[in-house]
C-alpha cells in the first residue's frame, strides 16, 4: 500500500519535472537574442555566427533541439555553458552548497521565530498578544526582501558593525541573508503553528485532560504541543523548494554565490544550458520538497492514511 503510493507519487513527480523542463525550454529559446552572436564577438562574420549556431545545434527546428536536450538529460548530461564552456553540472554543484546553506539558515530562522510566536498567539488566543503577533506575522510576510536585506545591511553591518557587509564564508556571513530570507516564512509558520495548536487544544483528549483536572499548561506542554508541532514541521519540505526558488533577490543583495546568482547572470547573456540547469535543479527541489511534505504529513498525523 505504502510502496504503491510512493511509486505513483514518484511517477507524478517525474511528470511534473518533465512539464517544467518542457515549458522552460521553450520559454528560454524564445528570448529574442542570439547566443551565437554573443559568443562570436564583435568582429565575427555572419558566416562565423552561422557556424556557431550549427555547432550548438541552434539552427535545428526547436522541437528537434528539445528532443535532443531530453535525450541528453536522460543520460544525466546537462550540457556545457555557452560562455564558460564548463559543464553545467560542475557549475551547479559548485553553487549548490551556498544556496543550500542559505535555505537551511532561513529555515532555522523561520522555525526559531515562527514557532514560539505561534504558540504564544495560540495560548493568548483572542487577547492582545495574539492580535499583535498576527499583525507582526503579516508584516513579515509583506516585507519586500530586497529592501529588508538592504536595511539590515545598513543597520547591522554598516552602522553597528556586527556582521559582514555581505559575501560568503563563515556562519557570520550567513546570518543576515538567512534572516532576510526567513522573515516572511516566519510569518507563515507563526500562523500555521497558531492554528495547529488551536486545533489540537480543541481536540477531545486535551479537553478531557483539562476536565480531569490535569493543569492546563501541563496538558498543553506535555501533549498538545507535540501533536501540534508535527504537522507544522512537515511543512518544511514545502518550504525548502519555495526558498530555493526565491533566493535570486537575497543572493543578489548579499553577493551570495549561489544558484540564484548563477541563473541571473546566465539570463543576462542567454546562456541557455545554465538557465535550464538552474530551473531544473530548483524545480527538482520544489517537487522533492512537496513529496517530502506529503510523506511526512501522514506520519505526523496518524489519522491520515495514504490513499
Amino acid at each position: 500500500m505504502f510502496l504503491r503510493y510512493i511509486v505513483s507519487r514518484l511517477l507524478q513527480t517525474a511528470l511534473v519535472i518533465l512539464g517544467v523542463v518542457t515549458i522552460s525550454f521553450f520559454i528560454t529559446n524564445l528570448v529574442p537574442a542570439d547566443p551565437a552572436r554573443l559568443i562570436a564577438g564583435r568582429l565575427a562574420t555572419a558566416e562565423t555566427v552561422e557556424n556557431i549556431r550549427s555547432q550548438l545545434g541552434l539552427d535545428r527546428p526547436l522541437v528537434e533541439q528539445y528532443w535532443r536536450y531530453l535525450q541528453r538529460l536522460f543520460q544525466g548530461d546537462l550540457g556545457r555553458s555557452y560562455q564558460q564552456r564548463t559543464e553545467v553540472k560542475t557549475l551547479l554543484l559548485s553553487r549548490l552548497p551556498a544556496t543550500l546553506q542559505l535555505s537551511l539558515g532561513a529555515i532555522v530562522f523561520e522555525l526559531l521565530i515562527g514557532i514560539p510566536l505561534g504558540i504564544l498567539a495560540a495560548l493568548e488566543f483572542g487577547k492582545f498578544w495574539d492580535k499583535a503577533i498576527m499583525v507582526l506575522a503579516f508584516i513579515g510576510v509583506s516585507a519586500p526582501q530586497f529592501a529588508l536585506g538592504l536595511i539590515l545591511l545598513y543597520l547591522f553591518a554598516y552602522l553597528w558593525n556586527m556582521f559582514p557587509l555581505g559575501g560568503y564564508g563563515s556562519i557570520h556571513h550567513l546570518i543576515l541573508p538567512a534572516l532576510t530570507l526567513g522573515i516572511s516564512g516566519a510569518g507563515w509558520y507563526a500562523r500555521m503553528m497558531r492554528s495547529s495548536l488551536l486545533d489540537v487544544m480543541n481536540a477531545d483528549y486535551v479537553r478531557t485532560g483539562v476536565a480531569k483536572g490535569l493543569g492546563r499548561s501541563k496538558v498543553i506542554f506535555k501533549h498538545a504541543l507535540r501533536n501540534a508541532v508535527l504537522p507544522v514541521i512537515a511543512m518544511i519540505g514545502l518550504d525548502i523548494g519555495l526558498l530555493m526558488g526565491g533566493v535570486v533577490v537575497v543572493e543578489s543583495v548579499f553577493a551570495w554565490p549561489g544558484i540564484g546568482q548563477l541563473a541571473w547572470q546566465a539570463i543576462q547573456i542567454v546562456d541557455i544550458p545554465i538557465i535550464m540547469g538552474t530551473v531544473l535543479l530548483t524545480a527538482g527541489f520544489i517537487v522533492l520538497g512537496n513529496l517530502l511534505a506529503d510523506l511526512l504529513y501522514p506520519l505526523a498525523d496518524p489519522r491520515l492514511r495514504y490513499g
Partner: peptide, 20 residues
C-alpha cells in the same frame, strides 16, 4: 498543469518572461 506551475521557480519564470 497547476502542479507544473507550482514546481516552477516563480521568480525565474517572471524574469525570463520579462526578458522575452
Amino acid at each position: 498543469f497547476t502542479d507544473i506551475m507550482m514546481a516552477f521557480p516563480a521568480l525565474l519564470l517572471a524574469i525570463a518572461l520579462s526578458a522575452i
